[in-house]
Design a protein around this nucleic acid. Structure first.
Length: 585
RNA sequence: GGACGUAUAGCUCAGUUGGAUAGAGCAACCGCCUUCUAAGCGGUCGGUCGCAGGUUCGAAUCCUGCUACGUCUGCCA
């Protein structure tokens, strides 16, 4: 099923050629959803844009376009309004037919793309032996949602966790491991570090206070990078410990991701330097191997380098990122590489991408894109910390969300004199709590800073996950109340869209495909959130205005189908945000 | 110093290639439960789209300057 928008765009584009000649084959049709319902459902502004080119009155142009349009099946006669807008109002009969098509379509009218692309989504990327913080939460939630949308569209997605599992901090960690847990290296499963973050902090203290420790840490880095067996074993132990902690978070969030950390690209780093050298981009400056950047200056106004090999011969993260780009293009055959990180890294990626392009690492057929998101701030507008100034642990943050949603639910149960099992309560609290955290994050334009507030994200009114979950629950409630299996409603009865609320809801349901195309292109999950929020509101208005179980005959079945299609759209949309649904709450 | 980003209602935010009278939620106030879960629905109130110019038939949106805030700015990632 082609989206309504797509069909109207094509129709207008055809009309332009018919009306004004072959020269207008590439003229943009400028069809959009109507800016205000009173203007109809869709509008085209193309007549206004052609005023100068055709040297005619825009209303006259609009009329000529309408005369050449063939939309009798879809629309009422298009109207010209204002200076030359063409307004389209969809026919109820057309909407009825489309809703009917969705009744038994699991994909709700969304066709997979014709030619799937190989897409790498690089997200989450915590650092080994460090706490996952709210910044990682954003990357994880946004990355997962983008990956889900692309997957549903039929793209071949590789989700990669580019964990920080390599680098100078491991010298310190391994040295401390040997000092504090010497038995860990000789006995199996002897390591029980417990809180790895505390371990990291202790190691850091030792590193800062003791010159000898510092020196042996440096030697440890060299040993690790040169493949010393014992060092590698220690490194592995620390990574495993961290990995287990990360996995708990991913399990709670229901997120799948393949770990491929920085260390993976270690064997390819030297090649990057060699190839940069061959392209003539490499310059040695103050002992370091650099590529000097175009359009970047340092504080003194001199040209700024991207350092790819340090004076001591070590590589840094720019080198790793260059190696990763090449590997993902050559070995993974990626056609689109998406990096989900905070906007603070925008400069870094701009630099790395520039060097990769100039070095010829990125073919024209490959798109490499940084998807930045804003800072997570506390309610004071500053970087989020606990009262004592500590980083907030992701686990405790998620736990608190669930505790709060549980308390809310229990209060409601008491109020409504309802009895539920503890399994039910715990499951509902988890779905609502985690869903609320995810939705709060995804529903904002990701480029702006994000003020993190438990109260706001867990508020159960307004533009929140619970609001949408509740709309879904309402439909399931109808099913229970009427003892109706929504999956086996009759298929031979007509859809009847006569009430304004029914028409409004039906139109909105049919716009999912337009939204998903936009999300895939712009990588902005908040567009999907906005769509689902509007869908929930329109459903609630329909629910209020149009009795379902009390309706009779075909009208009852039609409304049941409309409600069920809404619920399935909500469930699909929420699943693309990584949010589960509930039958009761 | 430079680069990038942000600035929209009291608060938190939308605003899709420039389009018609800039939209939600929260907060405040007023209504609607003998009727499918009121975690709902309807209504009222609330804006010099940071400031000043410019381009355009038309600017929150594009350009220039300014102000404020944020991020980044050579061997951490």
């Amino acid at each position: 099923m082609q989206s309504i928008l797509f069909q109207l765009q094509n129709a207008v584009a055809d009309a332009l050629v018919k009306a004004f000649g072959e020269g207008h084959q590439n003229t943009e049709a400028f069809v959009n959803q109507a800016s205000n319902p009173k203007f109809g459902d869709y509008q085209s502004n193309v007549a206004l844009s052609l005023t100068k080119i055709l040297k005619k009155n825009p209303r006259e142009i609009a009329q000529t376009i309408i005369d050449n349009l063939d939309l009798d099946e879809m629309c009422e006669t298009p109207a010209i309004a204002g200076p030359g807008f063409i307004n389209f109002t969809l026919k109820p009969s057309y909407l009825e037919a489309l809703i009917k098509e969705l009744q038994n379509d699991d994909r709700l009218g969304i066709e997979p793309v014709d030619a799937p692309q190989k897409v790498v989504v690089d997200f989450s990327s915590p650092n080994i032996a460090k706490e996952m913080h709210v910044g990682h939460l954003r990357s994880t939630i946004i990355g997962d949602s983008i990956a889900r949308v692309l997957e549903f569209r039929g793209q071949n997605v590789l989700r990669l966790n580019h964990v920080g599992d390599w680098g100078t901090q491991f010298g310190m960690l391994i040295t401390y491991l040997k000092e504090a847990y010497p038995e860990a290296l000789t006995k199996a499963d002897a390591l029980d570090i417990g809180d790895l973050v505390a371990f990291y902090k202790k190691a850091k203290i030792r590193f800062d206070e003791d010159e000898e420790f510092k020196e042996s840490s440096r030697n440890q880095v060299v040993a690790l990078q040169s493949g010393d067996v014992e060092s590698l074993q220690a490194w592995q132990l620390i990574c495993d410990q961290s990995r287990r902690e990360f996995q708990k978070i991913y399990d709670t969030l229901n997120i799948e991701i393949t770990e491929r950390g920085e260390s993976f690209y270690n064997p390819y780093l030297a090649d990057v330097i060699n190839d940069l050298n061959e392209t003539g981009l490499l310059e040695k400056d103050a002992g370091a191997q650099c590529v000097f950047l175009e359009g970047f200056k340092n504080k003194d106004g001199d040209r700024l380098p991207l350092i790819v090999q340090k004076t001591d011969g070590g590589f840094n993260y720019a080198t790793t990122d260059l190696a990763a780009i090449r590997y993902r293009i050559k070995e993974d055959e990626a056609q689109r590489i998406i990096y989900i990180t905070d906007s603070g890294q925008a400069g870094h990626f701009a630099q790395v991408f520039q060097v990769a392009e100039r070095a010829g690492f990125i073919p024209e057929t490959v798109e490499v894109v940084h998807v930045p998101f804003g800072l997570v701030q506390g309610e004071d507008g500053k970087k989020l910390k606990t009262r004592s100034g500590e980083t907030i642990k992701l686990k405790s943050l998620l736990d608190e969300a669930m505790v709060r949603s549980k308390a809310d639910l229990e209060a409601r149960l008491t109020e409504g004199d309802r009895q539920e099992s503890s399994e039910f309560i715990n499951h509902a609290a988890q779905v609502v709590g985690i869903g609320a955290v995810k939705y709060a994050d995804l529903s904002q334009n990701r480029t702006s800073n994000y003020i993190f507030s438990f109260d706001k994200m867990l508020a159960l009114q307004g533009n929140t996950a619970p609001y949408m979950l509740y709309a879904y629950v309402r439909v399931q409630g109808i099913s229970r109340q009427g003892e109706i299996d929504l999956a086996t409603l009759p298929t031979d009865t007509p859809i009847l869209l006569t009430e304004a609320a029914e028409l409004t809801l039906a139109k909105h349901i049919l716009q999912l495909s337009e939204v998903l195309v936009a999300v895939e292109k712009e990588l902005m999950p908040n567009r999907l959130c906005e769509y689902l929020y509007d869908l929930s509101r329109k459903f609630n208005q329909f629910y209020e205005a149009c009795p379902i179980l009390k309706a009779e005959g075909d009208r009852r079945i039609s409304r049941l189908i409309l409600a069920d299609t809404t619920a399935r759209t909500l469930k699909l949309g929420l699943s693309l945000l990584g949010i589960e649904t509930l039958d009761r709450m």
